[in-house]
Computed example of a mutant assay.
Amino acid sequence: MTPEEKLTSLGLVLPEVPVPVANYVPYRWAGNLLYLSGQGPKRTDGTYRPGRLGRNATIEEAYEEARLTGLNLLAVAKSALGELSRIEAVIKLLGMVNAEPDFSDHPKVINGCSDLLVEVLGDAGRHARSAVGMGSLPNRMTVEIEAILLVRD
């Protein structure tokens, strides 16, 4: 089953690729590594649900936001690659969580993205990862995640 077929079987649709709002590109090639710029849980209407872990967002809500962020990352990857089956491996994720200083469950939040990548890509979706807290994120969103992918020719 291709990753696109897997998405369909899960009832998931890749969103439109977000257009950068500043001076950067959504992805950048370095040999057969594809670097994906940080994405957030942008909804189809272009909005984000503001939230801060430890204040007004739960781990469960932020897990779903990280899952949506994973869909946004896959949308960017598909725009760069044409088909997601060219992803040989997700090498690394950097997951940033908008959190209060005493919040300590950052990995539980970023699991939303990690779990999605493994569901859609199988073993190719397993990756190294960092999950860290931030004092703020753009649009007051709960998570932002960037990725490095190894791509087949």
Results as ranks from 00 to 15, higher is better:
Leu12Asp: 00
Ala75Ile: 11
Asp102Glu: 12
Ala57Glu: 06
Val19Pro: 02
His106Pro: 09
Thr44Asp: 10
Pro18Arg: 13
Thr142Gly: 12
Val21Asp: 14
Glu64Tyr: 04
Lys78Pro: 01
Ala22Ser: 15
Thr142Ala: 15
Asn32Ala: 13
Asn56Gly: 08
Asp115Trp: 01
Gln39Phe: 03
Leu7Met: 07
Leu93Gly: 03
Ser85His: 05
Gly112Asn: 13
Ser85Leu: 02
Asp105Ser: 14
Arg67Leu: 11
Leu10Thr: 00
Thr58Ala: 06
Gly95Lys: 10
Glu144Asn: 11
Leu150Glu: 12
Tyr27Ser: 15
Asn139Gly: 00
Arg28Lys: 14
Pro15Gly: 09
Arg126Val: 11
Leu116Met: 13
Val76Gly: 08
Arg67Met: 12
Ser114Lys: 13
Arg28Phe: 03
Ser114Trp: 01
Asn23Thr: 09
Arg140Asn: 15
Gly122Phe: 09
Leu7Arg: 05
Asn111Gln: 15
Cys113Gln: 03
Val90Met: 04
Ala30Asn: 10
Pro138Trp: 03
Asp102Asn: 12
Ala57Arg: 13
Leu93His: 02
Asn111Cys: 07
Ser104Asp: 14
Ala99Gln: 12
Pro101Tyr: 07
Ser85Phe: 01
Leu121Gly: 09
Lys78Ser: 02
Gly112Met: 13
Tyr27Cys: 14
Glu83Met: 03
Pro101Glu: 12
Lys92Trp: 11
Ile91Gly: 00
Glu4Asn: 11
Gly70Trp: 08
Asn32Lys: 15
Ala80Gly: 07
Thr2Ala: 02
Pro107His: 05
Met141Cys: 13
Gly11Ile: 14
Phe103Arg: 04
Asn111Arg: 15
Pro15His: 04
Tyr35Asn: 08
Val143Ile: 03
Leu12Asn: 01
Thr58Gln: 04
Gly51Pro: 07
Arg28Gly: 01
Gly70Tyr: 05
Ala131His: 12
Gly82Gln: 07
Glu146His: 00
Asp102Gly: 01
Ser130Arg: 06
